[in-house]
Amino acid sequence: MEWFTSLATTDKAIKAALIIHGVALVGTVLLALDQWRSECETKPPQPKPQYITQDTEDALKLTTLDTLLCHYNHAIRETAVKIVCDRAVNDKDTLDQLLWGITRPNYDERMKNLRALAVITDPRESIILHGVTNDRLTITQDSLDKLHTWKAYAALVRSLELSLDPDQEVLDSDDWDEYPLRDMTEKLCLMFISQLVNTFDCEKLVKAKFVEKWLSKQNWGNTEDERQQNFSAYLRSKTNRLAEIMNCIRRSPAGREALQKCGLFPYSDVEDSEPDNDDTHLVERFGVLFPETLDVNSLDANHPTRVLLRSFQTTQTGEDQRDRNQRHREAMVLNDGSHPVTSDDIIQRDPASPA
C-alpha cells in the first residue's frame, strides 16, 4: 500500500514537471518566432533631410562632383551645378582668370570666358545645357558683390573696347533698336555692367573710362551737334540695357562731366544750368525797399540785403515752377465712349501758350 502511494506521488511529480517544461518550451518557441518576425519585417525608410550642409559641400571632391554632373537624376545634377558655380565664383584665382580671359584679343577665347563668367554668376540648368544665347540673366547678389571691383569694371570695359565695330551704322534712327543685333560679347558685357550700376552706382564704371573708351566711340555722327542730338534721341526712344547705363551715367556728376568732355552732352544743358542769381534785377524790381545809392555788387555774401534778395528769388522761382506745373497738368479728354481712351483723345495745353 505504501508502495502504491509512493508511485502515485512520483507520477504526479513527473506530470507536473512535464507540464512546466511544455509551457516553457511553448513560450520559448513563441518568443523565438516573434523575434524572427520582427527581424523579417520590412520597415519603411526614415525620411532624410532635403538639404545639403556647407560642410557636406566642402567635403565633396572634384571627381565626385564630376560624376554627379553626369547623373541621370535632374535634381542631383542641378545641385552639383550650383555647388560647382558657388565654388568658382567664391574662388579669387578662378574669378581673376576669367576676368583676364575676357580681355584677350582672340574672339573665341574672349567669348568662352564671358560664357563661363555668365554661367557661374547665374548657375541655371538651362544655361549649362543650351549655352548662353542671350543676355537675360539675373546675377545673384553675392556674385554682384564679387564683380563690384575695379579689376572687374576695367576688364569689362576692355572687353567692350575689343568688340568695337568699325563699320557700325549711325545711331540716328528712332524707329528701330539695333541692340538685339549687337555682337554677343558686347551684350554680355553690357548685361554685367547694367546689373552692377543698377545695384550700386556708376562711379567705378566712369573711372574705368567706359565713356571715353567705348561709349564715345559708337557711331553717333560726324559733327558735335549731330552726336549730341543722336545721343539725346537714343536716351529718349530706347529702353535697352545700353540706354539704362547711359541714363545712369548722365545722372552722375562725374559721368555727365565725362560725356561733356567727349562731346556727347552739351555744357549748357538745362539740368546743369545754375539758377538766375541776378541780384541787380531784383534790386530794380523791389527798388522801393532799398536806397537809391545801394550797390549790390559791393555787398558781402552774408549781408542782410543779399539774404533778403535770395529769399525773394527763391519765392519767385517756386511760384514760376508751380505755374508751369499747373499749365502742364491742364488737358481735355474728348471721347464719346465708343472706343477706349487713347493718346489721340487727349488734348493738352501748349506749354508755350500763356496761362
Rank of each mutant, 00 (worst) to 15 (best):
Ala233Val: 12
Arg251His: 13
Thr140Ile: 10
Asn219Asp: 02
Trp176Arg: 11
Lys217Ser: 07
Arg227Trp: 01
Leu164Phe: 04
Gln228Asn: 04
Asn219Lys: 08
Phe192Glu: 00
Ser163Tyr: 02
Lys187Arg: 15
Ile245Lys: 02
Trp176Pro: 03
Thr149Lys: 01
Leu205Asn: 00
Ile127Arg: 06
Leu181Trp: 14
Lys209Thr: 07
Lys207Trp: 01
Val132Arg: 03
Asp165Lys: 09
Lys238Met: 01
Asp225Gly: 09
Phe200Cys: 05
Ala155Ile: 02
Ile127Leu: 15
Val197Phe: 01
Glu186Gln: 15
Arg241Val: 10
Leu205Ala: 08
Ala208Asn: 06
Glu212Gln: 12
Ala152Asn: 01
Val170Ala: 11
Leu171His: 03
Glu244Val: 15
Ser194Ala: 12
Leu215His: 02
Arg182Val: 07
Val211Asp: 00
Phe231Met: 07
Ser126Thr: 15
Ser194Pro: 03
Asp142Trp: 11
Leu162Tyr: 06
Glu178Thr: 12
Asn240Ile: 04
Gln195Asn: 10
Glu178Pro: 07
Tyr179Phe: 13
Cys202Val: 09
Ile245Met: 06
Arg250Ala: 14
Gln195Ile: 06
Val132Met: 05
Ala208Ser: 10
Ala152Gly: 03
Asp177Met: 07
Arg250Gln: 13
Arg182Trp: 13
Arg182Gln: 15
Lys213Trp: 14
Arg251Asn: 13
Asn134Ile: 07
Glu212Gly: 07
Leu235Asn: 09
Ser143Val: 02
Ser163Ala: 10
His130Met: 13
Asp201Lys: 05
Leu181Ile: 11
Trp214Thr: 05
Asp175Glu: 14
Glu244Arg: 13
Pro180Arg: 08
Ala233Asn: 14
Phe231Asp: 04
Ala152Glu: 00
Met191Asn: 10
Arg241Gly: 06
Asp174Lys: 12
Glu224Thr: 15
Asp145Cys: 11
Gln195Met: 10
Leu171Lys: 01
Ser216Trp: 06
Asn230Lys: 09
Val197Pro: 00
